[in-house]
Amino acid sequence: MAKKLTVSASPHVRSSETTTGIMLDVVISLIPAAVMSVVYFGTRALALLSVTIGSSVLAEYISRKVMKRPNTISDLSAVVTGLILALNLPSTLPLWMAAIGSIIAIVVVKQMFGGIGQNFVNPAITARIILMVSFPAAMAKWTAPFEDGWAADAVTCATPMAQLATVNGGDVSAVSGLPSLTQMLIGYHGGSMGEVCSIALIAGGLYLILRRVISPVIPLTFIGTVAVCTLAAGHGNFEFMAYEILGGGLLLGAFFMATDYTTSPINFKGKIIFGIGCGLITSLIRIFGSLPEGVSFSIILMNIFVPHIEHLTTAKPFGQVKEKKEKKEAAKV
């Protein structure tokens, strides 16, 4: 035998799934939302998408190089971060601000903590929040769909979330100029580039669930909790609940950001707690807080709790009896 035999630990077959494949699936699932953002917000959206994705990949490449660690841009995770970040931004944001967001996400949040799988908070969300507090005016300048985002005097409009925050008790009819629920579904209203078109987001989310890239647990518990809370806050007004679910970053957050592997619990019970926690915090901010929107903050707050949630919900190894039960049984004997 000329070549030597490979000797390695079992198993000797591996599934065909790869990190790159998973990230590619996430990119594919976000394509509908990205396309719709270009449809609604034009070339400006395309420019923002290119800038965030490009600067994310570049930031990843350079930071790995500087840290003398293996290059990881081929796993496509930087593309996903850039893409999600772009979808979270208003279409009017200056491009250099978007680039700063990408650099914060990749360098500060991800690579400084050790790269993929090591960051304790979601890079895109953290970048968004940092941009929000750094450039509050620019980050709240929403235009209506089909407005020319390049023009300095583009007509701004309020997001449905901001409009709804002005009324108490879910009185939807009291809000003037609120888009219809159909408009909410197809995305014909103001808001972040990627969050407006609910149908595209739901399609992408379903794709991820069917491809088994994400488990449906977090999206379901997250959205479900928001539904229950807003229904209660709206005194049983289903219309209000529907606006709350379709509006703001809820769908984008629940399907694509709260399910981020690195920053969500890996066990089933932990996922339930995480989803409910995100839903509760989002609802509290939306209903009682002064901000119209709370998805980003809820996810980042729950990200921080993940190690504790996991620690408390770790499943007992096969066949191991719970300590309490053991004590009970011992007491019986």
Binding site: T6, I22, I266, P317, F318
Partner: peptide
């Protein structure tokens, strides 16, 4: 598929889901 390229853990949780011993 006999030898797959080793990358960093992304905490996807597949190993947790498939472990028959709940580890």
């Amino acid at each position: 598929d006999i030898i797959k390229k080793e990358r960093d853990c992304i905490r996807c949780g597949r190993c947790v889901d498939v472990c028959p011993m709940s580890l």
